[in-house]
């Protein structure tokens, strides 16, 4: 949108901001990247008891091009890290990342050559969920935190892609 690039702070852009953020935060489309036990735990958040649909995030998409919230659930080995980076890069802007569980956040107990010690070394993580595995309530809490972040975001903070500024 032109409003994003103009960076203005008039009445129009703040109203558009508020509307866009309201729409975005209530229609998150998560892409679960479940590589271990946390991925199994994530399923229970979607099921009827905890029901993530109450927060507008029930449309799980296994295609990164249709989603805006990457939920990394599980340990990431060195062979999977380039795949994860590629998936993140395929997601359309704006996008957010949740690192679910001790493994995705820090490598957990797997302090070995083959496990990446926290995906935040290479990707911009927004919210971390502690636990092994985290309770479903913790995942809902993380989702609400992401919604709060989105609410405070602004279209005016759009940074042009690196390729455009490089020349």
């Amino acid at each position: 949108m032109g409003v994003e690039r103009s960076g203005g702070i008039g009445w129009l852009s703040t109203t558009v901001d508020a509307f866009a953020n309201w729409a975005r935060k209530n229609s998150l489309w998560p892409m679960p990247f479940g590589t271990a036990c946390c991925g199994i735990e994530f399923m229970s958040v979607l099921a009827s008891r905890h029901d993530m649909a109450r927060f507008g995030a029930e449309a799980i998409r296994f295609s990164p091009r249709q989603s805006d919230l990457l939920l990394v659930a599980g340990r990431i080995p060195i062979k999977m890290m380039p795949v994860l980076t590629r998936i993140y890069e395929q997601m359309p802007e704006p996008k957010w990342i949740i690192a679910m569980g001790a493994c995705a956040s820090s490598g957990g107990v797997f302090d070995t050559y083959s496990v990446v010690q926290g995906i935040d070394n290479f990707l911009p993580v927004d919210v971390y969920i502690p636990g092994c595995p985290p309770r479903p309530e913790a995942i809902l809490d993380a989702l609400i935190k992401i919604q709060k972040l989105i609410k405070r975001d602004s279209l005016g903070h759009y940074k042009p892609p690196v390729e455009e500024t490089a020349t």
Partner: peptide, 16 residues
Amino acid sequence: ERSNFPVVKRRIGSKW
């Protein structure tokens, strides 16, 4: 090996 990957930076949204 486990710390030898390109770092991807955030492009949008930094107010928070």
